[in-house]
Design a protein around this nucleic acid. Structure first.
Lengths: 204, 204
DNA sequence: AGAAATTATGGCAGTGGGTGTCACGATAGC
DNA sequence: GCTATCGTGACACCCACTGCCATAATTTCT
């Protein structure tokens, strides 16, 4: 199609790649935007047009590669049982992590050394959770307390992903993420200790 | 009980109060550190010694007032049933919100208009969740997959708090947080749709 | 109580992330 | 090819944040 789009796409990837390389070798905070810009052979002003903040150089990668998981959820036929649809989403995340191990691990390591990155990633996770909640809500329709149920369901799914990834990353990418996720599912189905209100423990 | 400590405490509160007032009236991003400093009658350099980042002016408030909830959890006798101990923690959060409604609502509103604040708050929530997981782990001791169970338990508790607060805030502080929390607990105990691996649905 | 050691303060200069503006040059549409 | 459009990058600028240092307040020691 447009030559313009192609070039812009190239530039965008150039910037992200050089940024990642510099971040990994020098650390996030001690790498300046100017360094990245000159490494990618663009002006700093141009760089900011592609990535509005320094953190977005990292966060956007997660956004694009893991955001695909939500799309996957949305793409499931409406009559797919919710649990299965959610599991498909989880599988998508795990697949991406398997295919792009280096980067995913790098992201976690960078987050560990740069508070602002960690913060942005955390916020992104919340946004993502809300998207999932909306989709769950759309699928289940509006029953009583539909909003709360959807929110809880989405939160559970996100917990699985989050804990799986964390466990996987802490093992340095050695443990099999699928096995971890399955383990977690098993635990959840067996029942996890949950907070109980005194008033509830009586009535039930 | 040095005079020094007293004065510093006063200064600290002065700064936070003026910062909050300015944030609420002018918005977070359009309020400069200099404005806050001169309003609190301190040098900007001094302000930075009390609050290392602009966001911390807000986040520290949440940290101190809601961090008390984790302390509350830690303070529970070791033989307290875990679900009950966790519920006590939740109650503490709700109590603080009830006592300091204005500020809590202001924090949420500020987070809505300032991405960096939202991000820092999200990260803080994650740190907090890890603290809870550690405490849960300490209480339950190390069984099989103890880490995963603790992580899931802590995450569940955090979900309850998070969703309760969100629902409460979205109602403008009108709905009774305790009632919301109870509703959520009821839903959780009745069972929430959870992701299921195909392999699991067969074996169990 | 007074001198000496300690420590909070705030000013100044400087780094770096991020934005508005604008002239230039490349692409797209005719 | 000619013109409208749009990406580019340079410049000036704002502001969050830091290192450094002289000063002033507090604490401690005698």
């Amino acid at each position: 199609m447009g030559l313009r789009e192609i070039k812009m796409g190239r530039t965008r990837r150039q910037i992200a790649d050089h940024a990642f390389a510099l971040f990994v070798t020098q650390g996030f905070e001690s790498t300046t935007i100017e360094q990245i810009a000159s490494a990618a052979e663009v002006g700093t002003r141009t760089l900011y047009r592609y990535y509005p903040t320094k953190e977005s150089l990292i966060v956007d990668f997660v956004e694009s590669s893991l955001g695909a998981a939500v799309d996957e959820l949305r793409k499931q036929p409406d009559d797919t049982p919710l649990p299965q649809a959610l599991y498909t989403m989880i599988e998508t995340v795990l697949r991406v992590s398997r295919e792009d191990t280096e980067r995913v691990l790098a992201v976690y390591r960078l987050a560990e050394q740069a508070p602002s990155v960690k913060a942005r990633l955390a916020e992104q996770a919340l946004r993502w959770r809300n998207d999932v909640a909306d989709e769950v809500s759309r699928r289940t329709g509006g029953g009583e307390h539909a909003g709360l149920v959807a929110a809880l369901t989405a939160a559970s799914a996100m917990n699985i992903i989050d804990i799986t990834m964390r466990t996987w990353v802490m093992s340095g990418g050695l443990r099999n993420p699928d096995a971890v996720a399955e383990q977690i599912l098993r635990i959840m189905h067996e029942g996890v200790p949950m907070p109980t209100a005194p008033v509830l423990s009586q009535s039930s």
